[in-house]
């Protein structure tokens, strides 16, 4: 709004031909603003205000049912001294980062396979992409059956292949998190489809030039394909980092059958899940807000690190 006030003061003389222009510009701005107003109002009320409010509440003891009162840094101090739960949830979330490189490589490998010019490729592309369109809650329920130690398809298939097949998956604190990773890799198609799109954009002349230089398929992959699609790998990596920090739905839906959510013995109590419990089950909203800000800072740092290193391995066309 101050923008308008400033421009009003500078209204040029009436004979100035630019005056009409300025007025027209202003009118355009107003029209434009009124068109984006629904989004803008929504953003201010439902996004910006909650963000600022959560920062304030993170310094308060806030029981939801009674007004918040200021406690300074106590929530943050409690967080980092609460070893059993907070640190456990951090560790659980950190463990899930194992999934990130596996998912990236697997997604790329499938994309490379699906990039061949073969008959019926559209069918296979659809097949690999479909799992990532299934809503997370639905796929979680499905995998609850697939991972069932007693009659689940995963153990049965392993048995058919004469592999170890007595995994207790979600019922065992060692195998619960790997169970989630196996499940998530099923929907690797989301990243795959982006790789596939970018693979088709790699200029053909680069491969021709490499052929002339006598490059092997591996060399072409290593020195042509991967550098050319590195911005997309970078994109998937960033999304993966953020997604891993926010890991929630699968654990919320799939655990808790034999006790509390996040079990057994807190082995699937991910950061966001513990945050949710504090906010909505234990009425520790201030504590939960502090957790949300810690999560935000961690995500920010991790993303910044990835961005910093990206200069060394991400190549944009048109850059030197």
């Amino acid at each position: 709004m101050t923008v308008f006030a400033a421009s009003d003061k500078k209204t040029p003389p009436a004979d100035d031909p630019h005056g009409r222009m300025a007025r027209a510009n202003r009118r355009d701005t107003r029209t434009g603003l009124s068109f984006v107003a629904p989004w803008l109002v929504g953003f201010l009320i439902f996004t910006l205000y909650p963000i600022i409010a959560s920062l304030y509440y993170s310094f308060c003891d806030y029981r939801v049912l009674s007004p918040p009162h200021w406690v300074g840094l106590r929530n943050y101090i409690d967080l980092f001294t609460d070893h059993d739960y907070f640190l456990q949830s951090l560790w659980n979330t950190a463990f899930m980062f194992i999934e990130l490189p596996i998912g990236l490589v697997l997604g790329l490998a499938i994309a490379l396979l699906l990039n061949q010019k073969l008959k019926g490729m559209a069918f296979f592309r659809t097949l690999y992409y479909v799992p990532s369109v299934v809503p997370t809650v639905a796929s979680s329920i499905l995998w609850l059956w697939l991972l069932n130690p007693d009659y689940g398809l995963v153990n049965k298939s392993l048995a058919l292949l004469h592999l170890p097949h007595n995994f207790t998956w979600l019922n065992d604190r060692v195998w619960a998190k790997p169970g989630f990773i196996v499940m998530d890799l099923w929907s690797v198609g989301g990243g795959m489809i982006i790789y596939l799109a970018s693979l088709q954009g790699v200029p053909q002349y680069l491969y021709e030039a490499a052929d002339l230089d006598g490059a092997s398929p591996w060399d072409k992959l290593r020195h042509v394909t991967i550098p050319s699609i590195s911005p997309v790998i970078f994109f998937n990596l960033i999304l993966g980092v953020i997604g891993t920090f926010q890991y929630f739905t699968q654990a919320f839906v799939m655990t808790g059958a034999n006790g509390s959510v996040g079990g057994p013995a807190n082995s699937t109590l991910f950061f966001s899940l513990y945050l949710y419990q504090n906010a909505f089950q234990y009425f520790r909203m201030g504590y939960a807000c502090a957790m949300a800000w810690v999560l935000f800072i961690f995500t920010l740092i991790a993303s910044a690190v990835v961005f910093k290193t990206s200069a060394g391995w991400v190549y944009y066309e048109g850059e030197k």
């Binding site: 130690p149 979600l170 019922n171 059958a257 057994p264």
Partner: peptide, 8 residues
């Protein structure tokens, strides 16, 4: 673990 696996 085994009991809970069966129970699941």
């Amino acid at each position: 673990s085994e009991v809970n696996a069966f129970a699941s």
